[in-house]
Design a protein around this nucleic acid. Structure first.
Lengths: 137, 137
DNA sequence: CTAATCCCAACCTAAAAGGTCGGCATTATG
DNA sequence: CATAATGCCGACCTTTTAGGTTGGGATTAG
């Protein structure tokens, strides 16, 4: 149970984009250099974020990446979900069919609570919060 | 970011032990059969739980496993920690040295919040709660 | 003594993590 | 138009982790 570096990098890149403003696209090499992320790896991360509708890219010589919408509208949970798939930690929580014992399973209660705690924490913080260094409580 | 089956199995085994009462040791094969866990794998899981001081084993022909203390004194977080190591999701939260950018890192705030949410959820439920099907809120 | 149990080290396979590489498509600029 | 900076994409690679299995030894009640 560990956060992947893909996810750490992805969040940092998004925070960088948010902090950098939206005037013009930010080229990938700049993000990679500033944040110390291997460029080819970052490329694959940004691809996922683009597929998830969180960033938009413009090609060509003055191209780069921008947030797809205002930073207040992007929660950390959105980023993690785009990079890692559904937040849920065990298969049986969203999908009752996944386990034959589901209805009588006391453990399931635990994992559901954990899922709620995680979603709550991640969906409660937006990129805007992070750039203002003011995280809501 | 997924719960390992080691962890799922471990929790289920602990719940089984708690529900089974403390009269006499429960043999591993029984737990394995009842919970549908591969016996040799369960053996390794119980080894960790024993090293973590959560169960005690008695050897010999009427031997088996028992909770090391009353079920009200064992939180789910204890079990996960014994099986997976510290709950923390990223290195830089407990150990500031792990990342050169730590002090200026906005992302770090996120991971810390997440850590707190997870610890809170897991440490707030004990085995006793689970056997009574009454989970505190 | 025997059989059921726990204990332990070594090994195995498949999948995921964490990248890298090479080439193509797009586009502003000279 | 040629060029160079960018994004896009599929294939590949290496290391670590997950999820076990195997084979044997040590204990102990009957």
């Amino acid at each position: 149970m560990r956060i992947s570096s893909r996810c750490e990098y992805g969040l940092r890149a998004m925070v960088y984009l948010a902090a950098r403003g939206d005037e013009r696209p930010v080229p990938l090499p700049e993000i990679a250099a500033e944040e110390g992320i291997p460029a080819p790896f970052l490329e694959r991360i940004l691809a996922r974020l683009r597929e998830g509708g969180l960033v938009k890219a413009t090609r060509g010589v003055t191209g780069g990446y921008q947030l797809a919408r205002e930073s207040a509208g992007i929660a950390v949970g959105d980023i993690v979900t785009a990079l890692e798939g559904p937040l849920s930690l065990v298969g049986c929580v969203p999908d009752e069919e996944a386990c034959a014992r589901a209805e009588s399973c006391a453990s399931r209660v635990v994992w559901r609570r954990l899922d709620e705690a995680i979603s709550g924490a991640l969906n409660g913080i937006t990129l805007e919060d992070l750039t203002r260094e003011a995280v809501p409580r």
